[in-house]
Design a protein around this nucleic acid. Structure first.
Lengths: 139, 139
DNA sequence: ACCGCATGTTGGAATTATTCTGATCTGGGG
DNA sequence: CCCCAGATCAGAATAATTCCAACATGCGGT
């Protein structure tokens, strides 16, 4: 998904396309990383100096509701967000430097076992995280 | 693992067995749930009224370092802890009522694929969470 | 059984992430 | 171009977690 498609999705939802919101989207798209709300704020401020922290928070949550951003939790003290248009994937987290790599595939087969053993639970989503040490931190 | 074995492990590590610490361990063991620091605090206070919040935090982290507790993150605004002696497992999280069920098995086979595709990453641990709706919340 | 002291505990205050509030502003439909 | 529901803003409130410095105590050694 690209910026234009994302904006279209918001327009279709009847959401106002303010410059602040467009800039938040652009930051997530261009950055390609897992930014905290504060990191997004700093980047948006480079173009719109007066933007408030609260606006960033509300925008990030709004984008999450519309499926354009997703919240990823790396237990490092703050929530992080990524653009959701890259498709479903999982994460490798380095316990030393904190760097995050992406696992470009999903472990679908794992879920079928869950479905078989817990038929009463209606699965809506899942997260898989692998902790360890990246090559650079192994010595 | 039981309380005695856990205490032995701490003694072996040269850690003082204060009544507060023992009570934190007992709460985690008896409760069998996923308590937040505050919930642990309330329970410990029933026996040791003067115990401070900070002591609970430090104790929980110390227990985590010794492998007796583990920190589980359910993105509900606070960290939760469980006794680590029940063996490795994963979680089903209900998005409506917040109830947590345990998946009593591990998806070991998933990790072998990760090893194959990311041989440079030294795996130390992993977490698998499935979000959805428990039977009671499906209508 | 007792001492000494390294380690643990405490209350209160500081820090950090997140959310709320009420006044003010504005995107975009008509 | 006007209007107003919905968005933004600054600043304050809330909540989780951590820091601090004075005081207390578990426990190894006597």
């Amino acid at each position: 998904m690209n910026l234009g498609e994302a904006l279209e999705k918001l327009r279709a939802g009847g959401v106002r396309l303010t410059p602040q919101r467009q800039e938040v989207l652009r930051v997530l798209l261009d950055g390609g990383e897992h930014y905290s709300a504060e990191e997004v704020w700093r980047r948006v401020q480079q173009r719109y100096a007066g933007v408030s922290f609260d606006t960033i928070y509300r925008t990030l949550h709004m984008l999450t509701r519309y499926g354009l951003a997703s919240e990823v939790d790396f237990a490092d003290g703050c929530r992080r967000f990524e653009f959701a248009g890259k498709g479903h994937h999982h994460h490798l987290v380095c316990l030393r430097c904190g760097r995050i790599e992406e696992l470009p595939f999903c472990l679908e087969d794992c879920l079928s076992r869950v479905r078989a053993e817990k038929p009463d639970f209606k699965i809506a989503g899942h997260a898989f995280k692998v902790y360890g040490y990246c090559r650079r931190c192994q010595q």
